[in-house]
Design a binder for these strands. Structure first.
Lengths: 192, 192, 192, 192
DNA sequence: CATGAATGAGCTTTCATTCAT
DNA sequence: TATGAATGAAAGCTCATTCAT
């Protein structure tokens, strides 16, 4: 057990180092040697925990997706009404983007780049299922527009990625008021 | 004393090759040698037209931004009412994303990645000014919510990037009906 | 936990290969790939032992300077009279030039070329200090002319470089008699 | 005639540019493109005046050797006594080294480097013939030691290269007094 | 004669990965 | 398991030279 923990530490340090490097330098300037140095292991050690660089990136992606959904559906219970449920999830995701900046930026980078294998990306999509279910319910209850869930996502959740994009963070500080505004905009866009 | 002239064709072929490669393989797997091969020039020729790889990418980014805005504000005249003006621009951008897929994907990749120099990115932002002006007018006329232009952009324009994202294109074919839906969603989100 | 150790043999082989190549082809025609081939290592291995090509050359220079001084002051003891001390050192250096041909030619090449960083060259100068001290003593004892040590060096030691220059070696075979002649010439030039 | 002169100007500018670059950067960092830029001609133009880079360097070497001997034997008339003749030539060469620094350094670099073809180097040696003749006369007259001309050269002329070496110029300013000292040292070394 | 564009070959250096311990 | 050394392949880039005008 002690050994297992020790090992996991290295794995996690490596994932962290990768996250950090890819975010700051981009995938194209994130060599294994630097990852090893930051994680304070030997380059050879990486290959004990990961098959190769692509596998390391893929695993990091999946872990970040899992982390994302663990945030997204915190305190979410299906008993609440649709709007309140949606509000809960929306703010959860907003907080994830605001507080887990590196993790969130990494996911944005992955989603707009061919750096993750398509198959892995498809796997990562599953994490959104509860939200899709909620929207289905909303449509049945007549409180949400009868449109594709892709549209619903595009106009309510996806915009959060823009608001937390590094480039605009300086020009547009996101305070609580703006976030409340944003939620209203999001809800107005899909409510019936 | 007549000499061979630096022909723009080569420059354009190189930019096209770069666009193609970066889109399909990512920046990290887009070596100069492949670009040269696709553009049918010698690797050394690239350095006649561009200082180095970063300069090539930067220039491509700026050209794509210029192309983008030439699409975005096609047939846009400030005399129309705010909603019609916005509709014009919104559909222009949607069509750009739908028809200029490679150009559009490349821009998405750049915006979510540290592959473009920050200074160049800032330069690329200028292209949106007419839209920002329109929104200002809309707010003064009381037809658009009194919120930051970043929010307006995030919830109306930015979602288009999601809808045209390679990954979802297969699952969610964007027909004319869906696009009309999308515009309504966008407008609902920011109209007063 | 035992690992392969950075072995000095490779480092030395690389320095030897560099010495050989630079001497025969010149710095301008001594590519890293050839050095690697001669030293029987991979080109990448060079960069484990040296920062870059300039560092490799610089280190070689310093090693050759150290070797030089280890020859120059062999069997030199300050108790002897000035002339005998000088004779000892002079013949040591002459023998170095005659027997360590490659090492000696390399140093000549470095001293007449901007291929070594100035700072490193300055460092290499320190090795002559014992000779400078001897000359100082000679001046105090009144057996050596009261002139700058640079002149003393220029007219006694530096000429040895000419006598061992590749170009003249064929025309002027340096036998023991000639060397004895040369010493007398050298001594005559600086003795009072 | 006018055209011919114009052409010669380019040839001379190219030789000057080469001299300058090789002296400051070394042969290994003296690309044809830079030479062309400094000489304000096109790279292609170089190949009108010179066969290739090696030919350019070779020709420069020979021109510098010719220049050297035109200095060395200025005002030299065989009627004077040996010592005065030698003094004349020695000071001529000293002045060449002191005043034609770039030309002189270039020759030093060539003589200690494999950058000039051996055959060309041999050709360059001829320029010293008058001095060799003088020494022969000196030996016959019994005023100069009966030793190889290589030794005579090594201990009287060659030292001048050291005294004008870039590296030592700062530490040992060569004023008129030092030069007079140096001549005496030189003469003492070979006089009977 | 003169040129700027163009290039294939080759340069230094880096990288993902494996080796040997 | 864990490592630093080692590496073949390939990266970005430069160069001497030639091309086309």
């Amino acid at each position: 057990m002690a050994i297992r923990q020790k090992c996991d530490k290295k794995r996690i340090d490596l994932l962290k180092a990768t996250l950090h490097l890819v975010n700051n330098n981009g995938f194209h300037d994130a060599p294994m040697s630097k990852m090893a140095k930051i994680a304070e292991v030997s380059p050879a050690t990486i290959y004990i925990y990961f098959e190769n660089k692509q596998d390391l990136i893929n695993q990091l992606y999946l872990e970040m997706k899992t982390l994302f959904s663990s945030f997204a559906f915190k305190n979410y219970h299906e008993e609440q009404c649709v709007k309140e449920s949606f509000r809960q999830i929306w703010f959860n995701i907003a907080n994830f983007k605001l507080n887990q900046v590196e993790e969130s930026n990494f996911l944005s980078q992955c989603d707009n780049t061919p750096m993750i294998d398509e198959e892995i990306k498809r796997e990562g999509l599953k994490h959104l299922q509860p939200l899709l279910n909620l929207w289905e319910r909303g449509k049945q209850e007549g409180v949400i527009k009868q449109i594709s869930p892709y549209l619903l996502y595009a106009f309510t959740i996806y915009p959060l990625a823009f608001l937390t994009n590094k480039q605009f963070k300086n020009s547009c500080e996101l305070n609580q008021e703006k976030i409340d505004d944003a939620f209203n905009v999001a809800w107005d866009s899909i409510k019936v």
